[in-house]
Amino acid sequence: MNTVTVATDRDAEWKDSLTTERSFVRRLLIAGAFLYLTIFLFVPLVAIFAEAFKHGLSGYVDSFLNEDALGAIRLTLLVAAVAVPLNALFGVAAAWAIAKFDFVGKQILITLIDMPLAVSPVISGLIYVLLFGAQGWLGPWLAEHDIKILFALPGIVLATIFVTVPFVARELIPLMQSQGREEEEAAVTLGASGWQMFTRVTLPNIKWSLLYGVILCNARAMGEFGAVSVVSGHIRGLTNTMPLHVEILYNEYNAASAFGVASLLTLLAIVTLSAKALIERKTVSAKSQR
């Protein structure tokens, strides 16, 4: 028995030696990767927190425990609370139609859904200015009826929705396509209502991807800068989201406070990445259990 395992060990070693590089090449590649990642990832990540804590812990806490910063945090949470559920609903509806049915124009719809990702954030804001601005299509009518969309909450919400529309749909469409429609068809044939089928068959199958899509959508919604910057009008304490507050503080040479608020957004990004890693592990182990 022993000789057999030794032989296979040696065999595996020999096979590995066929598909690997000499050790100095290996070390060079790892060093190159680390150098690049150090310059572009590790140093920036550490720098955010180093700058934020420049004036100690109390300075750090003060940077976001003041009225302007708290107002920005509140507005950011409010915007995400409207934008994310709407986009999640859209994502589930679009993925259901696309993945479970064959219809005319399906491929066009799939391509169109990704479009907001290809558009520059500045243009995403610009189109709403053209629509609702004083010179825009609806501008005069809105002014007459005293409805404020631009430079107010509705404009910020709309621009945020635009930028984050695809995220949930993008996670769900490939997954639901690969899952096929047999399980749902079985449920319906056995007499389940549409809602029962969705909550007992579809939802359990897609929950992790749905969760990841929502988390990603939320991170982008809270962090959006360009599009929101165009439509917000930068009214402090009123239409200032967290990223815009960071910009204002930075331009006022209040770098430590800017990085203090920025560090909160960075923590959000780190939580998002951790959630991604966790959910990937979950889905891989779920697959291997089947």
Partner: peptide, 28 residues
Amino acid sequence: SVLPGFGLTLGFAVFYFSLIVLIPLSGL
């Protein structure tokens, strides 16, 4: 298809996407 919800989900998705993305973009 025996599966329910095609008209509802596609209708909502297309309506929402047109309102948020397509109509504003065409304005450009």
